[in-house]
Nucleic acid binder design. Structure first.
Length: 271
DNA sequence: ATCAGCCCCTGCTAGC
DNA sequence: TGCTAGCAGGGGCTGA
């Protein structure tokens, strides 16, 4: 499941390869893909890529003439840079044909999203307008985060998974950040001490930065834009380790459901 | 207004 | 061995 570090890895791959490339043709397996706008792919053809950026878990490709393509990989989406005329990848849902290579969008579960829009409308069309601050930017302040937590009875994990509070965090990094901060994910947010909130705030940043350094977590099937697996799964302390020994205290890690998500934590190390 | 819980979708696995 | 129920979860939607 691609979260911020995985999406950032793909975006960096794209930045080093597709800037300046010309989009020749778009083929989408309708209705397999959820597409908004852009029945009119013709108007995107022949345009060069100007910039590629990330917003939360969204990939945003800016083209000439104020055209914008937004992708969200959701659970099982993947984006692959391929040599020209490569045969379809597994569960391919769309392909963008560029002048020097193909860009394939594959997605087993069809949860992924592809939005064809323009500079004026892409934020709203894609849902990026609803995102909270980027966790690794200065927009994500301890003060605002603290205020959000203190004003809700929701559990900690539900709040940090809420993309409108802080964007880009998914199940893996939520569990890792909770463990790393020593706070139980099911704690009611308004019972957290200032000291705990600061630890959580710092842990979120540290875990995401670590994920990016390791080029993402390939727990099941994440691959970068070149089909290479990440390394961060080797450094996970709790995610996917339910029933195994805690790396800090050897207590058996507990697996439970929190905020509707499978969750692993250490009842000894986390309070 | 807030928030829990259902739904989408399909591959994999545990259990019979 | 073969079948099936249940699980995985990001985010949109619904109803309390």
């Amino acid at each position: 499941m691609p979260e911020l570090p995985e999406v950032e890895t793909i975006v960096r791959d794209l930045q080093s390869s597709i800037l300046g490339s010309k989009l020749l043709k778009v083929v989408v397996q309708v209705p397999a893909m959820k597409i908004t706008k852009g029945e009119d792919f013709l108007s995107y053809q022949g345009l060069k890529v100007e910039t590629v950026t990330r917003a939360g878990k969204y990939i945003v490709i800016f083209l000439e003439k104020e055209k914008v393509i937004v992708l969200h990989l959701r659970m099982t989406g993947r984006l692959q840079i391929l040599p020209l005329k490569t045969k379809p990848i597994a569960f391919e849902r769309a392909r963008l044909y560029f002048d020097k290579f193909d860009l394939a969008f594959g997605d087993i579960r069809k949860f992924g999203k592809l939005v064809f829009s323009d500079l004026k409308n892409y934020l709203k069309d894609s849902g990026i307008d609803k995102l909270g601050p980027e966790p690794l930017s200065s927009d994500f302040s301890l003060e605002k985060f603290s205020l959000k937590l203190s004003r809700t009875k929701r559990c900690l994990k539900a709040v940090i998974l809420d993309q409108s509070v802080v964007c880009g965090i998914g199940n893996i990094y939520a569990d890792e950040a909770c463990f790393s901060s020593g706070v139980l994910p099911y704690r009611e947010a308004d019972t957290l001490e200032n000291e705990e909130i600061e630890k959580i705030y710092n842990s979120i940043k540290l875990e995401l930065e670590k994920g990016i350094r390791n080029r993402g977590t390939s727990f099941s099937d994440f691959e970068d834009a070149y089909g290479k697996r990440g390394e961060n799964q080797k450094f996970l302390k709790v995610y996917g380790r339910g029933g195994e020994a805690c790396l800090q205290c050897q207590t058996s890690l507990v697996k439970m459901k929190v905020a509707g998500r499978g969750t692993v934590c250490c009842k000894n190390c986390q309070k």
